[in-house]
Computed example of a mutant assay.
Amino acid sequence: MTDKIDVSVEAVCAAYLDLADRHAPGLVEGLYLQGSAALGDFTPGVSDVDFVAVIPEGADVEPLREVHARLKERGRSPHFDGLYVTWDDLRRDPEQTPARPGVHAWRFEAESRFERHLVTWHVLAQSGVTVRGPAVAEVGVHTDWDLLARRTRENLAGYWTRWAEKSSRTTSLWGLAALVPARTSWGALGVTRLHHTLAAGEVTSKTAAGEYALRLFDERWHRIVREALRIRKGGAALYRNPFARRADLIAYMRMVLANVP
């Protein structure tokens, strides 16, 4: 492993490969990291380890169920979440590839669409960390910026706009959930990350997205952005009143959504 990563990330990768090589010899031909570990934003105790593992076409994948069950039993933290692909899958539009094994929150599924989308492929091509196999640049990972940009705008106009509107209904389940600190981080940094993707032409981390917002947006929004970063990274709370924090969160998200590049 040539890239510098957090020791807990290195430990869970080593444990996984040890189990894979013992229970399914020769099955895992490549292992790459995407997500926060690849984007330099891994936060112990908060972030998951997002992996992409390469297996041969037509391989028996059932041994992987045992591998992930045993990895969970070892009590490894953080979660080791990801998907299995073939080398050819990585060179194609992920939407056109078949469902293959995936793991989320320790749950293994033999056929899954989890994380099988252009964002994963772009992060892998842009910043992927090689744990096993050829360097990412040699793999020829498929990218399509125009399509990714279009889907990013659709995501903002659809999922995130609905998220903000539902969370603004103060007495609804969504509105009550928006009082939880983690929802502030998810909402504020989520829309900002996509805004930055469209503005910069690359996928960024949540922390870098927050720093981008502090540079770009008016000072009136800095408190809620700093609170979102604080929730992710730690530190003293900037709000005593969760209702005030929710109001600022919704106002900030609406502002970002109204100013998509």
Score class of each variant (00 low, 15 high):
residue 3 D to W: 08
residue 6 D to I: 06
residue 7 V to D: 13
residue 8 S to H: 09
residue 11 A to K: 14
residue 11 A to D: 04
residue 12 V to R: 08
residue 16 Y to A: 02
residue 22 R to Y: 00
residue 22 R to W: 01
residue 22 R to N: 03
residue 23 H to T: 05
residue 27 L to G: 00
residue 27 L to K: 00
residue 27 L to R: 00
residue 30 G to L: 00
residue 31 L to V: 08
residue 34 Q to M: 12
residue 37 A to F: 01
residue 38 A to S: 00
residue 39 L to D: 06
residue 41 D to P: 04
residue 41 D to A: 09
residue 42 F to W: 06
residue 44 P to Q: 03
residue 44 P to W: 07
residue 49 V to T: 04
residue 50 D to L: 07
residue 50 D to Y: 04
residue 51 F to A: 03
residue 51 F to W: 03
residue 55 I to V: 15
residue 56 P to E: 11
residue 57 E to V: 15
residue 58 G to F: 09
residue 63 P to E: 06
residue 63 P to D: 04
residue 68 H to R: 05
residue 68 H to C: 05
residue 70 R to I: 00
residue 74 R to Y: 00
residue 75 G to V: 12
residue 77 S to H: 07
residue 78 P to C: 12
residue 80 F to N: 05
residue 80 F to R: 10
residue 84 Y to I: 04
residue 84 Y to M: 07
residue 85 V to T: 15
residue 86 T to S: 11
residue 104 H to M: 14
residue 106 W to R: 11
residue 107 R to D: 11
residue 112 S to N: 01
residue 113 R to Q: 11
residue 116 R to I: 13
residue 117 H to N: 15
residue 123 V to Q: 13
residue 128 G to L: 09
residue 129 V to N: 08
residue 130 T to G: 08
residue 130 T to M: 08
residue 130 T to W: 05
residue 131 V to N: 02
residue 136 V to C: 06
residue 147 L to R: 00
residue 151 R to C: 02
residue 156 L to E: 01
residue 156 L to Y: 02
residue 158 G to M: 12
residue 160 W to E: 13
residue 171 T to D: 15
residue 172 S to V: 10
residue 173 L to D: 15
residue 173 L to M: 12
residue 175 G to R: 08
residue 175 G to K: 13
residue 177 A to H: 13
residue 181 P to F: 04
residue 186 W to R: 12
residue 186 W to S: 14
residue 189 L to E: 09
residue 190 G to L: 13
residue 191 V to L: 06
residue 194 L to R: 05
residue 195 H to R: 12
residue 201 G to A: 10
residue 206 K to D: 02
residue 207 T to C: 08
residue 210 G to R: 08
residue 213 A to M: 02
residue 214 L to Q: 02
residue 216 L to S: 11
residue 216 L to C: 12
residue 219 E to H: 07
residue 221 W to E: 04
residue 224 I to V: 05
residue 227 E to V: 09
residue 231 I to V: 08
residue 232 R to K: 10
residue 233 K to C: 02
residue 233 K to H: 05
residue 233 K to A: 10
residue 248 D to Y: 05
residue 250 I to A: 03
residue 254 R to M: 07
residue 255 M to F: 07
residue 257 L to T: 11
